[in-house]
């Protein structure tokens, strides 16, 4: 039997990352991060030593890719001008405050990892196997499409992040897709905790547990205020409701939120 702790979307939330690592390193044999280390939160350089100290195997997300390549934006490409305003603000801040050495490290991250554990092929990607910034929402992925993605990735278990909301689907073929959620901000459910996924693999079978992570979100909010980050971002941290970048949410996920 082997246990993997997997998370993504740290978004500079070093306090949630520290809390998640304290829990995950006790419970899992290995810890993986599916990318997007920066954005949204304060002082992006603070997450890097935490990942290094805990030997977290990390893959690249679209935000990491943009920062490493010095691109003009985060490759989120919102069409709503309000979403674009906040995405721009967040990216400019993160770009300015990420050290050159950390940008080089981000640039060297692999786009995926492929593991063979307990007879199961496990593939880790940021967005989807075919595109780093493709959104895999629970309510807009048919079983048929997920089976196709598993074939595409040559995997029995596919793990992704990028959307910010966790889910797990056991498919008719016996294979699994897990969106591990994010550590960076709550998942638009009115709760302030964030989530990581704990996968237990044994004898060609998989079980998935989503683990809530409570952390000092008031302290994070204070840091964000000190860094003059937008009040809208701080509100999300304090209330658990998303206030920006809502355009990308499909109907079901949007209807569950407040805004």
């Amino acid at each position: 039997m082997r246990r993997l702790a997997i998370f993504g979307g740290i978004y500079s939330n070093h306090l949630a990352l520290a809390a998640a690592l304290a829990d995950a390193t006790c419970r899992a044999d290995a810890v993986y991060c599916l990318g997007d280390l920066g954005a949204f939160g304060p002082s992006p350089d603070r997450v890097f030593p935490l990942l290094h100290d805990s030997d977290v195997a990390t893959i690249q997300g679209n935000y990491d890719n943009s920062l490493a390549l010095g691109l003009a934006d985060c490759q989120c490409g919102y069409t709503d001008p309000r979403d674009n305003f906040f995405a721009r603000l967040s990216y400019d801040y993160t770009f300015r405050r990420t050290s050159p050495a950390n940008k080089v490290w981000l640039g060297a991250l692999p786009a995926s990892l492929h593991l063979e554990i307990e007879g199961l092929r496990v593939a880790l990607f940021h967005g989807s196997p075919r595109k780093m910034n493709e959104f895999l929402w629970e309510s807009t992925c048919s079983d048929a499409f997920l089976e196709y993605l598993l074939d595409f990735a040559r995997a029995d278990v596919l793990c992704v992040t990028h959307t910010g909301i966790k889910w797990h689907r056991a498919l008719p073929s016996g294979r699994h897709v897990v969106n591990v959620g994010v550590l960076g901000r709550p998942e638009n459910d009115g709760q302030t905790n964030v989530w990581y996924a704990l996968l237990t693999l044994a004898n060609r079978s998989l079980s998935v547990e989503f683990v809530p992570v409570a952390y000092d979100h008031h302290a994070l909010a204070a840091e964000m205020r000190a860094e003059r980050l937008p009040a809208e971002f701080i509100e999300t941290i304090l209330t658990g409701w998303w206030t920006t970048c809502l355009e990308i949410l499909p109907h079901k996920e949007r209807a569950r939120g407040r805004f």
């Binding site: 490759q75 490409g77 069409t79 967005g127 595109k131 910034n133 959104f135």
Partner: peptide
């Protein structure tokens, strides 16, 4: 529903 331009250049 969401332009693919959101997911790519």
């Amino acid at each position: 529903n969401v332009s693919t331009a959101i997911e790519g250049a």
